[in-house]
Amino acid sequence: MNERRNGLKEKITNNQIWQSMFRHGYEKTGRRYTLQVLQNVWLHLHPPRVTRHAINFRFTWCMGGITFLMFLVTAVTGVLLMFYYRPTAEYAFRDIQYLEFDIPFGMLLRNMHRWAAHGMVIAVMLHMFRVFLTGSYKKPREFNWGVGVILLLVTFFLSFTGYLLPWDQLAFWAVTVGTNMARATPVLGHEGPFAPQDIVTQANDVRFALLGGTIVGPSTLLRFYILHCVAVPLLASVLMALHFWRVRKDGGISGPL
C-alpha cells in the first residue's frame, strides 16, 4: 500500500511538467524554506524570515496590510460590478438601481465595494498616523514616506472618481463642488493665483481636463469611470509594488534600525 502510494507520488512529481512548476523538493532544511519563498512569484511578497517585533500588533496595528486587503477587496468586487454597470448618462443610474434591487447579491456586492473603499481610506490614514507616531518616516525610510503620501492622494482620488459613478443627485453635486475647487489651482486653474488671464480659461484649464468639458456631463462620467477602473488602479498598483519593495529594502517592517 505504502509502496503503491510512493509509486503514484513518484509518477506525479517526477516529470518535467511538475518540476517546472515546483522546483524545490520537500526536504526539511532552512535552505529549501528560503528558496521556496524567494523563488516563487506569489510567496516572494513575504520576507523569508520574520522577526519577532515585525508581528507585534501593538506596534504596526496591521494598518498597511489592512489597507492592501481593502484594495484587493475593492479590486475583486469592482471587476464584478463592471459586468453590470455601463458608464453612460442613459444607463448608469438605472444599472445601479438594477444592481441594488434585482441582481442576486448585487446589493451585497455593491456594498462590499463601497465599505471596503471607505475602510481603505480610514485604514490608510491610520497607517500614516502610526508611521508618524513610530517615527518610521525617518532616514532611510524617508523615500518610502514620500511614496506613501502619493499613495494617500491616489487613494483619495480613487474614492473621489468612484463617487460620481452612481450618477445620482449626491454624486452629481458632490463632484460639481469637488471639481469646482480645481478652478482655484495655481497657474493651471482659470481662477487660481498666477493663472495668465485670457490664456488659461474655463475651456482649457485643469478642471476642463478633469471633466472633459466645462460642466459635469456624460464625458465626465466616462472619464471618471476610466480613471476609476483602469488608470488610477494601475498607478496605485505600481506605487504599491514600489512601496512594499522599499519596506523590505529599508530594513523590513517596523524594525528598529
Binding site: 471633466l211 472633459g212 468639458g213 466645462t214 460642466i215 456631463g217
Partner: peptide
C-alpha cells in the same frame, strides 16, 4: 460643443 463632443447643456 463642450470639450470633444457635442452635448446638450
Amino acid at each position: 460643443k463642450d470639450g470633444w463632443v457635442e452635448t446638450n447643456k
